[in-house]
């Protein structure tokens, strides 16, 4: 567990890509795999390597995510992207001041955070479930307590099971099958929080999942997703672990849902493709 004032220096190695049945003649791609510079994390170094080699270009998108684009025009049978970063994370003051639940419904605030209150493709939930939510989790005046209660309820109803869903799975589908991965638990939580009028957003990044690992020991980590909710300020919470966000979390991008921040997306012209999967290795070096 992290203590106030502590920090961590993490080295991340994230490999992903696609392999084609046959070859791809050309492809156009966007990678969102570069950690953000934020008050709670300092990016010391970040490098993206693409194979086959391609000229890279960078921009900041609507959600301020660092996007690296590249296109390939020679025939190739696989595309591999390696993101390496060294990030120093700082833990935040746990005593976050917060506005009351009631003030969330002031018109001005509702207007300002309209995008994070509206349902999206992956964060839509049926009214039946939302009604159930209100029964089981009557909103309290303290937003943090309400959020905790929602997450407890979600973790009670949906179990983390690797490979149980698709990248396109919606909150409704996940709820029905009662299983999901971190992306899904995040979508479900966001759907529920939004229905209560709590602006929420999707955070993608990394988690060094072994707090007991020693310095220099490489841990197979995760491409991870969690929630940030608004309570006067944006606060992070991890529905998969039921914990807060600490120095073992590294933030890459924030959006309304997964669709706004896919780590690697692209189009190509060629035989059927499938994902190379994702390998994330994190080493705490300080």
């Amino acid at each position: 567990m992290s203590t106030p004032g502590s920090s961590a220096l993490l080295q991340i190695r994230h490999v992903t890509g696609f392999v084609y049945d046959g070859i791809a003649e050309s492809s156009y791609n966007e990678a969102r795999m570069t950690p953000l510079a934020l008050p709670r994390q300092r990016v010391i170094d970040a490098l993206l390597t693409v194979h086959p080699k391609a000229l890279q270009s960078t921009y900041r998108d609507y959600f301020d995510t660092i996007v690296t684009t590249f296109d390939l025009h020679e025939a190739h049978d696989r595309l591999e992207v390696l993101a390496e970063a060294t990030v120093e994370t700082f833990s935040e003051n746990p005593n976050q001041p917060s506005i009351t639940f009631g003030s969330l419904h002031v018109a001005k605030l509702v207007d300002t955070y309209a995008e994070y209150l509206a349902p999206t493709t992956r964060t839509t939930m049926s009214t039946i479930v939302l009604d159930e939510l209100r029964e089981h989790v009557p909103p309290r005046d303290d937003i943090h307590e309400t959020v905790q209660a929602v997450i407890t309820w979600v973790r009670d109803r949906v179990t983390y099971v690797r490979g149980s869903t698709l990248v396109s799975s919606t909150a409704q589908e996940v709820w029905a099958q009662r299983q999901g991965v971190c992306q899904d638990l995040t979508h479900v939580t966001i759907a529920l929080l939004r229905s209560l009028g709590i602006p929420s957003r999707y955070v993608s990044g990394y988690l060094h999942s072994d707090a007991d690992a020693s310095i220099g020991e490489m841990v197979v980590g995760e491409s991870h997703a969690w929630v940030e909710y608004f309570c006067g300020d944006w606060v992070g919470i991890d529905p998969t672990n039921g914990s807060g966000i600490g120095v073992h979390h590294v933030i890459v991008a924030k959006g309304r849902e997964y669709g706004d921040v896919p780590p690697l997306k692209g189009i190509y012209n060629g035989g059927p493709s499938r994902s190379l999967g994702v390998v994330v290795e994190i080493t705490r070096v300080g």
Binding site: F18, E25, L264, G266, I267, Y268, N269, P272, S273, R274
Partner: peptide, 13 residues
């Protein structure tokens, strides 16, 4: 020409 390029979204399968 790669006539009428048909694009696929990657990782679809």
């Amino acid at each position: 020409q790669i006539a009428a390029v048909v694009w696929e979204a990657e990782g679809a399968t």
